[in-house]
Design a binder for these strands. Structure first.
Lengths: 259, 259
DNA sequence: TAGTGGTCTAGACCACAAC
DNA sequence: TTGTGGTCTAGACCACTAA
């Protein structure tokens, strides 16, 4: 078992807080690396001379912080190091579209991981209020809804839902499962809507149970949400893309002038 | 006490899961609104006929989801709806600095809430590795470290730590508690470092216990982290600002061209 | 002072994983 | 079969809040 300090009974902090701190320190110092198993609950109860519930409370702290995850019958493990992907603002550069690459795939190629898309579901439906507002249409107006899930090295990392007013999608591959080289944005440009700018709204929250399942997230793991609105050169919003990303897998990078 | 179904002993779900589900449903259905107190632990143990730890585990679930927060000696309360603030990219526009406003205060004025800054702590110290790398200096080189906490309407919402190489700060108010009109960036520009661009790296994670205390976050509430690097017109990184924001209080908005 | 949540003990039985 | 974590019981004492 790894080296862990004993409890300091003169410390005003509760024993479970001290135990959690000792384990956290061991992880941060690298004595416990990604994927390593923590000492078992019975080892910890003996080492610290406390009841099992006290040890479990310490571990609960670390789970809530997203540092560790437990596997029934196997043990408690340090969460694997995040495969951090930087999504630079350039990821939507037109040159990628001209070369036939969609943004997620272009980024994957650069960062050296294997990207996949699955669960593609395309349908026409009435627009929900939040995307309708951003598109400048009325809630309930018909839109093409494209849902898909992105995987990196086989792990699900992002859920995305795009909303495109039917008028902009008619007669294009946007209504197909496979949108062809360059993806949705290439098709919109061909259809007379050259893109000028994007607006992204970034926030974070805890996932819903459905999102937890789809992204295979343990408890205590937050998600990043990004709502991107694409505008054409006429200033018209042509697409809203609502994404939910596993927070551990992403760092979003933005570059902007000081003016 | 509000209406709650009894346990279903034929249900395969654990009692604490059923109790959590019943309380969650009461919140979502509006029988328990924001700020309302949940039934006390003793009321719930009697109602469901279970041990106190079982009830506490159910409440722990809801805390992890960010639905409720507990107050020692008072009770467990449904969390109030978030007050969302948008921080547009323009918040660092030079015009604000010229008018003598720092970014946070300029944003507050626009959005109509009362902003405060407290716990300002300024010191000189060796640079930790992450900011040093972004500043293009060696870890351990001396930097001015400015720590502060931002409050909106009296609630703490953000912790910020800035790192400025001593060479850029010498002889300026950057080493003072009060940096004067326009803040750090105005002083850097006066000192011969006109700002050209910013890079922000955005991510989300669960807070550390210290961050939880400083931001008065319940367990199960994530934070947004933003690391901003400021570059002058010579392409030199002149400041790194590391911020931790209460996720419920922020939506970050970015605007960028399609190129 | 009464009621609330916070922490802790010392057991118990169960489900799951690995040998 | 052994060891792991998951769930639960029935108590205990403490710290905080409000009347």
């Amino acid at each position: 078992m790894i080296q862990l300090d004993q409890l300091d009974r003169s410390d005003h902090r509760a024993p479970y807080v001290q135990i959690a701190a000792a384990l956290r320190e061991a992880i941060n110092a690298g004595r416990l690396g990604p994927g390593d198993r923590l000492p078992s609950e019975s080892e910890l109860t003996q080492h610290y001379g406390v009841a099992r519930m006290t040890v479990r409370q310490a571990i609960q702290e670390l789970k809530t912080e997203g540092l560790v995850m437990s596997e029934h019958g196997r043990g408690v493990f340090v969460r694997a190091a995040p495969v951090v992907r930087r999504l630079a603002s350039e990821r939507f550069a037109r040159q990628h579209r001209e070369r036939g690459k969609a943004a997620f795939l272009a980024e994957a190629e650069k960062a050296g991981y294997v990207a996949n898309v699955d669960s593609i579901h395309v349908r026409q439906a009435p627009a929900p209020a939040p995307p309708a507002e951003r598109l400048g249409i009325k809630a309930g107006d018909p839109v093409i809804v494209r849902e898909r899930r992105y995987l990196a090295n086989g792990e699900p990392v992002e859920l995305a839902t795009s909303y495109i007013p039917v008028d902009f999608a008619r007669g294009t591959a946007i209504t197909e499962n496979d949108t062809g080289p360059g993806g949705i944005y290439a098709r919109l440009e061909e259809a007379g809507h050259p893109l000028e700018r994007f607006v992204e709204e970034v926030a974070a929250r805890m996932p819903t149970p459905a999102e937890r399942r789809a992204l295979q997230l343990g408890p205590g793991v937050p998600v990043l949400t990004v709502v991107r609105t694409a505008f054409d050169t006429a200033g018209q919003a042509v697409e809203v893309c609502d994404t939910v990303k596993a927070a551990y897998a992403y760092v979003l990078e933005y570059d902007f002038p000081a003016r």
